[in-house]
Simulated assay, not measured.
Amino acid sequence: MNLTAKQAIFSANIYTLKVEYSDSTAIGLIKQGSQKAFERLFKDHFKSLHAYAYTFLKDDEMAEEIVQNVFCRIWEKRDQLKTDGSIKAYLYRSVHNESLNYLKHQKVRANFGVYYADEMEQVGNDDSASKKLLTAELQKHIEKALSELPEQCRIIFQLSRFEQLKYQQIADHMGLSIKTIENQMGKALRVMRQKLAEFLPIILLLFINWFV
């Protein structure tokens, strides 16, 4: 191969490396299963998305995990990928939502932890053997059931049962009508009863006002 031919191939490779996909092209390639297009998207945006997630989480490792989760979900559901605009905006919106969901989940865990600790202290002072059946497994199931509630239901349930707010206080806090609060609580209670049916007798003993 002569020098001119080698130079032509080298130039072509450089061009290939530098070429930038349009959003629609990148999305199309990823939907078709192009790992190269996906890796390019990841490398182009990971650093800035990581910095963006960090502004919410203040935790370097968790920010990295959040961004990785977003990209993993994109790849796993690539055939359903719809950005409704620029792919950059879509990525930032996804990281934003993922970060807020994580923080909300942590808040639920923290609030439940305080409530759980208070109840366990009472259990420790109680001679009833049935109350001592509350274990880490029950806590895990309660947290899972809470996380599966629709966001509004979860917040209303948490304010009512964990923070002991009355319906009117919750309505004022959330800018909703009392009727909406009642309907959402009814929905939350139905779901929680269904998800925690196996543990319902224990929960009724320990958290007597949860399902009434």
Rank of each mutant, 00 (worst) to 15 (best):
E98R: 06
L176W: 13
R161H: 08
L146P: 09
Q158P: 00
W210C: 06
T4Q: 14
F157D: 00
A12L: 13
E65W: 10
A53I: 06
Q106H: 05
S48I: 14
K36M: 12
K31W: 04
K131S: 05
R109E: 13
V212M: 09
Y52G: 03
G124R: 12
T4A: 14
D172S: 09
G124W: 14
K144V: 10
W210P: 03
G28R: 03
L176A: 08
E148A: 10
S11P: 00
G33Q: 08
L176H: 07
R154N: 14
E148C: 10
Q194A: 15
Q122R: 15
A171G: 01
V19H: 12
S34A: 13
K6L: 15
E61I: 12
F162P: 00
W210Y: 14
F207E: 03
S177I: 01
F157A: 05
R40A: 10
G33I: 13
Q35G: 07
L29P: 05
L149S: 08
S34Q: 09
I30Y: 03
G85H: 07
Q184F: 05
I74A: 03
E61W: 11
E98P: 00
D126W: 15
A110E: 08
E163V: 01
K195I: 12
R73P: 01
V67I: 06
G113S: 11
L29T: 05
Y15H: 06
E198M: 14
G175W: 12
G175I: 10
A12F: 14
E64M: 07
A5Q: 13
W210R: 05
A63T: 02
L3P: 01
V212C: 06
M120A: 04
N125Q: 15
A51I: 07
K166S: 10
I170R: 02
H96K: 07
